[in-house]
Design a binder for these strands. Structure first.
Lengths: 325, 325
DNA sequence: CTGTTAGCGCTTTCAC
DNA sequence: GTGAAAGCGCTAACAG
């Protein structure tokens, strides 16, 4: 079913149908006839033809890298909320932690003439930045630093620093930190460095702290903590880079001490304020980020970038809230 | 940058460039010249022009309705895993529980000539089915019943029945059930009916059971349970329609009884086997579904549908595993 | 093996 | 207000 067929059925030109669809000059009478023809035929206009012609898709591509589920869904909610109100649509792609895959997805987005790309939880592959720039497609990176590109992220270093400072640890305490693996600077290096710096402030030296690295799943957190607890060292505190890891840590503590609040068991802290974790164990020290806000801001910046292609890149750092201490 | 420009730069015809991109007959020499020209110009072919011409986008639209996060991400992982290996791409849209929005998204997918639609966690709007059929776009519904359309879902009734039977309740026990609101038959009616039927089998009559309805968030589960516990009735068991609701219920129990395993506190069961919940509280009775498998099956059926447009709709019901009893 | 050519369905001047 | 006509960038015959 095409433009032209609808036009013939309504006894008008294809240009009139186009005007009907896009709100151009048109007499009421023809408008009605066209509406009837569309209703009758179930006509669905071809976005591809329109995009080919206009070179605008009115669509923003969102690339989601698999990390914290609650963070991801929160950010996406925010993005969607903002764009749904505007005239832009979104097209989400979900990729694993694989650079090849990410590049491939990004290319297919570019091929579809999307007007902008929001990259969530993952820094762009260096080689890809080149393509973005060449294609003159605005990019907003969410959750990570990004050289040469706009970004929205949380102050992970500051949050971790504050968290460490407020744990109530004393200089003689044995503290362990479970790091999140991978090339995610925000979850990884920023939080770890901030945490260690915070501990230092309260008199705990960096090399007194046992740092272990885990993946992103509950099971990864369990394994890392399990290994830690199997040693003879007794820990006073085990801090985790994400709440998901903390959930695994809790499981490990349960395995070794029977219950989480056993007096001999190390205390735990998380990062990210997962609603399920919080509800179930009660407030353990963690950091709360407003992911939806983050998504909204990213969308906002994208719109600004779209309106004024010449503006400089913008970098926004959002705050945090320490909870459960 | 277009086909033609690349062709001129390489000293060949635009058809040759097209062949290069799609693997047609081409001499090694021209192949090399074209590759060089593409590299030099950073040429990105226009998917819209190709789709317009070929009427095939090699893309499957996935509509995600916001429900259980872990279920959603699991299913999406499965879908992506399967399609990534095939020649199809996916385009994910994330919609709230709003029929208007869902219809709008679905239309935009149709406008883009996607080859098929996978609808996750949500039954299609009746009016939309009409459009699908007219557009001859194959649809696979995941997680819900679907009249006239292919579907993949879990045996929620059976799982709830089994769960109820294996809770170890006695006929004199006071049991409450917290239902998931909304028009989701799978989460709602199927689980509730199965659970009540299972209780009946072990001698607990339906009208002895207090049924309350909650939304899909932890907070919703908390409120519903809180209200329940504020009455004078003492419950032996509170069963929840999802693990997210169960997390809220745990919070409420903690509020009323101090701790989850207080002897006076009701016991709890969930549904869905959320990894965080499970790790943190230890195995509470729940049902484990293989969401990724579900996504893979949905993708598989979609491919079959795509290969043979005439085949009948297919309906697959996946099993479950009772855990934590 | 390779180039020429004719559209895919739409929007957008440009005349009327 | 309205229609005719020219392409957007690509692929798929068709000739060579």
């Amino acid at each position: 079913m095409t433009n032209r067929e609808v036009a013939e059925l309504a006894g008008v030109s294809s240009a009139a149908v186009s005007r009907y669809l896009n709100g151009g000059y048109l007499s009421e009478e023809k408008r009605a006839r066209i509406a009837a023809a569309i209703e009758e035929t179930g006509y669905v206009p071809s976005a591809n033809a329109r995009i080919l012609r206009t070179k605008k898709s009115d669509t923003i591509g969102v690339i989601l890298t698999k990390t914290d589920e609650s963070a991801m869904t929160g950010v996406v909610s925010g993005i969607e909320k903002y764009f749904f109100a505007s005239d832009y649509g979104t097209s989400i792609a979900y990729v694993g932690d694989d650079t090849k895959e990410q590049s491939k997805i990004m290319r297919s987005l570019l091929e579809r003439q999307i007007d902008g790309i929001i990259l969530v939880s993952s820094a762009p592959i260096p080689g890809d930045v080149d393509l973005y720039l060449r294609a003159r497609v605005p990019v907003v990176v969410v959750g990570q630093h990004a050289h040469d590109l706009s970004s929205v992220r949380f102050d992970n270093f500051g949050a971790a620093y504050d968290l460490a400072s407020s744990l109530g640890c004393t200089p003689d305490n044995r503290v362990a930190y479970i790091d999140a693996a991978g090339h995610y600077r925000s979850f990884g290096a920023d939080r770890r460095k901030g945490f260690l710096a915070g501990l230092e402030r309260i008199g705990i030296d960096q090399d007194q702290v046992s740092v272990r690295t885990a993946g992103f799943t509950v099971e990864d957190g369990f394994r890392a903590t399990d290994e830690l607890l199997s040693k003879k060292t007794e820990f006073d505190y085990i801090a985790c880079a994400t709440d998901t890891i903390a959930a695994g840590a809790i499981k490990a503590v349960r395995k070794h001490f029977g219950r989480v609040d056993s007096p001999r068991a190390p205390r735990l802290s998380g990062f990210g304020n997962d609603p399920i974790l919080q509800a179930v164990v009660g407030p353990i020290p963690s950091v709360s980020f407003d992911y939806e806000e983050c998504g909204i801001k990213a969308a906002e910046i994208m719109i600004d970038l779209l309106k004024d292609r010449l503006s400089n890149t913008r970098s926004l750092v959002l705050g945090y809230q320490i909870v459960g201490v």
